[in-house]
């Protein structure tokens, strides 16, 4: 068996879908867990704008419903991320990655600013388009190998088309928007760290995980 992430430490069996922890995925899982706990207990920071030409500044107040909603989305994103880190099924992985994608959209879309809404819409479109290569990749893996379980796929020399792997990476890129950090700066103008950081962290984590999945297959 190909053990790119280390020897599996333990398995959690849910029927056909087996969740397993290797040293690599366990590390990522704990990282997501710790950050989710941070999000749970932390208070959001307020955006401070310096008034131009005067010795003054003003802070944007975040309403309580908005705070609650974004915290809810961040926690959901953290949980989805934890699932994506440890799942042992290709289709399950694609579902969790799309869940991360939609949570990210939710975190950003809650901000009441036209500019941010516009950005959230564009990201949402990319996340929606990203599900196309994701599901296609999972389906192609199932059709060409006859299994979706990563444990089975790692076992022997099952030939997975290169196109399926490439599509999987492309889909995760769309959901995680990892290569678009330049544009993400637009969203950082939106008030409310640590919730926005959750977007970046989840993108990073799902990208680390997809690298493992690709090497595993």
């Amino acid at each position: 068996m190909n053990e790119i992430g280390g020897t599996p430490l333990f398995f959690l069996e849910f029927g056909d879908i087996v969740v397993y922890f290797t040293p690599f995925t366990l590390t990522l899982f704990l990282l997501a867990l710790v950050f989710t706990v941070f999000v749970l207990i932390s208070r959001p920071e307020r955006q401070i704008d310096i008034a131009f030409g005067a010795d003054a500044f003003y802070a944007k107040v975040i309403s309580l419903p908005e705070l609650r909603f974004r915290r809810f989305m961040s926690i959901a994103c953290g949980l989805a991320c934890m699932g994506a880190m440890v799942t042992g099924d290709v289709f399950d992985f694609t579902l969790l990655v799309s869940l991360v994608g939609i949570c990210n959209v939710g975190i950003v879309a809650a901000v009441k600013s036209r500019h941010v809404q516009n950005a959230a819409y564009q990201y949402g479109l990319v996340a929606l388009a990203g599900t196309v290569p994701l599901f296609s990749a999972a389906a192609m893996v199932a059709a060409t190998t006859g299994t979706l379980s990563m444990i089975e796929l790692a076992k022997d020399a099952v030939a997975i088309p290169l196109a399926a792997r490439a599509l999987l990476v492309l889909g995760v890129m769309g959901e995680g928007m990892a290569p678009f950090y330049a544009a993400k700066a637009e969203m950082f103008r939106a008030p409310g760290a640590p919730y926005v950081i959750m977007c970046s962290l989840s993108s990073l984590l799902i990208f680390l995980r997809v690298a493992e999945v690709i090497l595993l297959l």
Partner: peptide
């Protein structure tokens, strides 16, 4: 529901999150 039940748990979760938004 049974053998691939975990998939179907995530699927309404996605719907739920989208609906919440």
């Amino acid at each position: 529901y049974n053998t691939r039940g975990l998939d179907t748990v995530f699927e309404p979760t996605i719907l739920f999150i989208a609906f919440a938004i």
